[in-house]
Write a protein that binds this DNA or RNA. Structure first.
Lengths: 94, 94
DNA sequence: CATAATTACGTTCGTCGTAACCATA
DNA sequence: TATGGTTACGACGAACGTAATTATG
């Protein structure tokens, strides 16, 4: 799994539409479709139920969607924490 | 930032030695060095203080290291949550 | 001068986009 | 038959490994 997969998942989970999600991500539908497929294979679980007229979250997809924000928050906190302590250090240093 | 970068960071942060960390990751020292550099550039912060004889965490690196486990936990929970609900669904379905 | 990290360089693999394809309402 | 998702395929960029380089204790 890579963060790219999570970004793709989130877009599709929110749009429930591959074409719109792809547009939002500034990529084409084809790599998006593949990314979701890769993620599903990695997890061993189908995240979306899609027939050729509609896309909706599977049960597993719903649960997964709920946990993604926690990952994003953790990532952001890591970023900010590092940045903040570097700023403080820069202050101390001069 | 990609998860690859976090895996690399964690290995170096724990080993405090690029060669050992690389070995542990089953990659060479060279891509590892680059990955750390990329991460540092992405964060805009130096994570390790390294001269050619030793490697140690910077202040920002220490803070970052503390936040990485939270990310890993969140990722694992997402994985398990999806997997679990898929199992439950399979049970229900039959 | 030995050890540890980085840079140079060519190769390989992954990801992309275009286009053809398949499925269903 | 129009719409929406997937598969095929060639091109490009990112990541790798080997080897040369730099730096310092």
């Amino acid at each position: 799994m890579e963060l790219r997969h999570l970004r793709c998942f989130l877009a599709v989970a929110e749009e429930l539409h591959f074409a719109r999600a792809a547009e939002r991500l500034h990529i084409e539908q084809s790599p998006l479709s593949r990314a979701i497929k890769e993620l599903e294979e990695d997890l061993g679980v189908r995240l979306f139920i899609r027939n050729s007229r509609s896309t909706r979250l599977s049960r597993a997809g719903q649960v997964f969607k709920e946990s993604v924000p926690r990952i994003c928050t953790a990532l952001q906190q890591a970023r900010e924490g590092a940045d903040l302590s570097a700023c403080r250090r820069r202050k101390q240093t001069r």
